[in-house]
C-alpha cells in the first residue's frame, strides 16, 4: 500500500485554501492579511527546512548529530517555558536551570524507556524514531514546566499568610507550602489527564491521523498513539514534580523563612 503523493503543484493548490481566510480578512477589514501571509510563508519555510534537516540526519546517520538535535530541542523548550514568568519572591535566576533539568529528566527518561522497552529502536539513536517521539515528549514537558512555574508562583503569592502561619507553628517549608505545591502540580498535569479522557472521542490525534493518511494500518496507528499518550503522561508527571519541588525551595531561606516579595 502506497500513500498518495503530494506533488509541489498539489501543495500549491492546498495553499490556495489560505486565500479564503485572506478574502474574509479583506472583506471584513480584520487586518489579518499580513499575519496570514507571513504565517503561511513562515510555516512553509520552517517545515520544509525541518524536512531537509531530517533527510540529512537520516542520511549521515551519526549518533552525536542526533543527540545534538535533541539537545537543541530541550534548550528551546526550556527557554520557552521560562519566558514570561512574572515577578515573584522566588528566585528568578533559578527558573531556567530548574525548567531545563525538569524537561531534560522528564522527557529524557521517558524517551529512554520507550525506545528501549516498548519500541526497541535500532540502532539506539535511530533518528527516524527518536526525533519525532522526542518532539512530542518535549512539547508536553515544556507545557507542564510552564504551567507548574506560573501556578506555583501565583499560589505562593496568594498564600503568603497561610505559609507563614504554618512556619510560625513549627512547620518545615515543605509542609508550609504543601497546598500551593499540590495545586501547582495538579494544574500542570490536568491537560495530560484530560487528553487521556477525550482521545478518540473528542480529538483524533494528529500523529495517528498522519500515520493513517500515510498508509499505515489503523490498528498499528492506534497502538502507536496509545504508546504516545502514555509516554506523554509520564513525561508530564516527572517534569511537573521536578519543577514544583525544585522551584518551591527558592521561596525560602535556609532558616525556613519565607523570602520577602520582590520589590515592584
Amino acid at each position: 500500500m502506497h500513500p498518495f503523493e503530494i506533488s509541489w503543484l498539489r501543495l500549491m493548490a492546498a495553499a490556495a485554501l489560505v486565500l479564503i481566510a485572506l478574502a474574509l480578512s479583506l472583506w471584513q477589514k480584520l487586518g489579518l492579511e499580513k499575519g496570514l501571509v507571513v504565517g503561511a510563508i513562515r510555516a512553509t519555510v520552517q517545515l520544509v527546512a525541518v524536512g531537509y534537516v531530517l533527510v540529512w540526519l537520516f542520511d549521515v546517520d551519526r549518533w552525536y548529530l542526533v543527540l545534538a538535535v535533541l539537545a537543541v530541542m530541550v534548550i528551546v523548550a526550556t527557554l520557552t517555558a521560562a519566558r514570561r514568568q512574572s515577578k515573584s519572591s522566588g528566585d528568578r535566576r533559578a527558573i531556567v536551570p530548574i525548567a531545563g533539568v525538569a524537561i531534560l529528566v522528564g522527557a529524557g527518561l521517558t524517551l529512554a524507556y520507550v525506545t528501549t522497552v516498548v519500541v526497541h529502536v535500532s540502532p539506539w539513536y535511530n533518528p527516524r524514531y527518536l526525533i519525532p517521539l522526542f518532539g512530542m515528549i518535549v512539547a508536553n514537558s515544556m507545557n507542564a514546566a510552564a504551567l507548574a512555574l506560573e501556578r506555583l508562583q501565583s499560589e505562593m503569592e496568594a498564600r503568603r499568610g497561610e505559609v507563614e502561619a504554618y512556619l510560625a507553628l513549627g512547620a518545615t517549608p515543605g509542609q508550609a507550602c504543601a497546598e500551593a505545591t499540590r495545586r501547582a502540580t495538579v494544574a500542570a498535569m490536568i491537560p495530560a489527564v484530560n487528553a487521556l479522557a477525550v482521545v478518540g472521542v473528542v480529538s483524533l490525534p494528529g500523529m495517528m491521523t498522519g500515520q493513517i493518511l500515510a498508509g499505515a494500518d489503523p490498528a498499528l496507528a492506534v497502538r502507536y498513539q496509545l504508546v504516545v499518550m502514555f509516554m506523554l503522561t509520564a513525561a508530564t508527571a516527572i517534569t511537573a514534580a521536578i519543577t514544583v519541588q525544585a522551584y518551591r525551595r527558592t521561596f525560602f531561606t535556609p532558616a525556613a523563612q519565607l523570602k520577602p516579595r520582590a520589590p515592584s
Binding site: E162, E164, A165, A168, L169, G170, T172, E179, A256
Partner: peptide
C-alpha cells in the same frame, strides 16, 4: 533549632489565617 524556636515562641498574626 528553627522549628523548636517557633514552637517555643508562638506568633499570632494581625490577620488570622485559618487552616482548612
Amino acid at each position: 533549632r528553627i522549628r523548636e524556636l517557633r514552637r517555643r515562641v508562638g506568633y499570632v498574626f494581625q490577620t488570622p489565617v485559618m487552616f482548612a
